[in-house]
Computed example of a mutant assay.
Amino acid sequence: MQLTFLGTSAGRPTKTRNVTSIAFCLPEPHCGFWLFDTGEGTQHRLLHGGLKLNKLERIFITHLHGDHLYGLPGLLSSRTYFEGAGPLQIFGPAGLKEYLNVIFQHSGVHLGYELEVIEVSAGEVAADDRFVVEAAELDHRLPCFGYRITERPQQGQLNLGRLAELGVRPGPLYGKLKRGESITLEDGRTISSSHVVGPQLPGRIVTILGDTTPCQNAIVLAKDADLLVHEATFAGGMEEKAAAYGHSTIRQAAEIAAEAGVKRLVVTHFSSRFDDEAVAELVKDARTIFPYTDAAFDYAEFQVKRST
C-alpha cells in the first residue's frame, strides 16, 4: 500500500510543485489505484508517474475549489482512450454531479465507460471486501471532506516451510488453507489451516484530509492512523492568516497528528511562498511537536507499513 503525491502546491502550481492530487496505490495482488483530488494537470502527472488511467478505480474529491478539481474533466475524457478502462466511481461534495454534467453537456464529451458520481455526506461512503472509506466534513471556506481509509484485517501468511515438510504442493490447496479451510491429502491426512497459516494481519489506516483549519473532525478521522496526510499551507506563527483563508499552519498539522495518536504525518499543500529549502525548515519546526513528520513533494512515494 503506497501513496504517490502528484501535486503538493496550494492554490496554484509552481515550477516544481503542481496543484493537489494524491494516488492511493492498492496493495498486492491488486494493481489498481484511487485518486484523492485532481488539480489541473493531474493526468500529465500520472503519465510521468507511470500510473495508467485504466487502472484507476475510484476518485475522491475533498472540495470544489479549482486547485483540487480542475483536472477532473480532462482526466475523465482521456480515460476513454485507455483499453480496458472499466467502471469508475467518483465521490465528492454536493455540486460535483452538476459541475460534471454541465461541462460534459457543453463540451460534447462521451465517455466510453460507466461513470457513477456519488455526492457524499458524513459517515461510511464506500466499502468492499478489502477497504472501508469514511468521510467527515472539515472546516474550510467551502464544504470540504476528509477521508479515512480502513483496511480490513487480512489472513495470515502461509508457512511455506511447514507445508513443504507436510508434503503439500503449491496449488489450489494453498488457497483453501489461506481461506481458513482444512484440507485432506491423498494419504488421508487432514491439515488444519491454523497449523500452517500465521496469525491474522491487522488492517492499516490512512487518513487524507482536504483543506481545513484545525477541527475536531480532523482528529476523529485521523485517530490511530498509520499515516495522516494534512495540509500545511502556512508556517508556524501565521495562524491568524491561515484561519482567515480556511487553512492550517504546519505546527497545527503536527498538533493534530500528536493529539490523534497517528504513527506518521505527511504534510502537503504548501503556499507558493515556500521553496524547498523553506519547506525543510518548516518540517524541522513541526518535528518539535510531532517527530514523525515528513514533507511531500511531487512524485514522492510513501509506503504505508503494517503495525506489528
Rank of each mutant, 00 (worst) to 15 (best):
G161I: 08
K223E: 15
W34E: 08
L185N: 12
E151G: 08
L228P: 02
P73H: 09
H48A: 12
V132G: 00
I149N: 03
L75E: 00
E114I: 09
A254P: 11
V133Y: 01
R148K: 11
G146I: 03
F302R: 04
G95Q: 15
L47C: 15
T249M: 05
T190I: 12
S194M: 10
K284G: 01
V133E: 01
R169F: 06
W34Y: 15
T62S: 13
R273N: 05
K284A: 04
Q43M: 10
T288A: 15
M1P: 04
Y70E: 14
Y299W: 14
A23G: 07
G261S: 06
F82T: 05
E231A: 05
E137R: 10
T4H: 03
G156K: 00
I256T: 14
D298K: 10
A260H: 02
E124D: 07
E255L: 15
R148P: 02
C215S: 11
F5Y: 11
S182D: 13
D294M: 13
S194W: 13
A126E: 11
N217Y: 05
T207Q: 04
Y292M: 03
F145A: 01
T20K: 10
A222P: 04
P13D: 03
T293C: 11
V109P: 04
E181N: 15
N54T: 08
T233Q: 09
R169W: 01
T80V: 14
S77C: 10
V304N: 11
G146A: 08
E151R: 04
L76S: 01
H140F: 13
G92K: 03
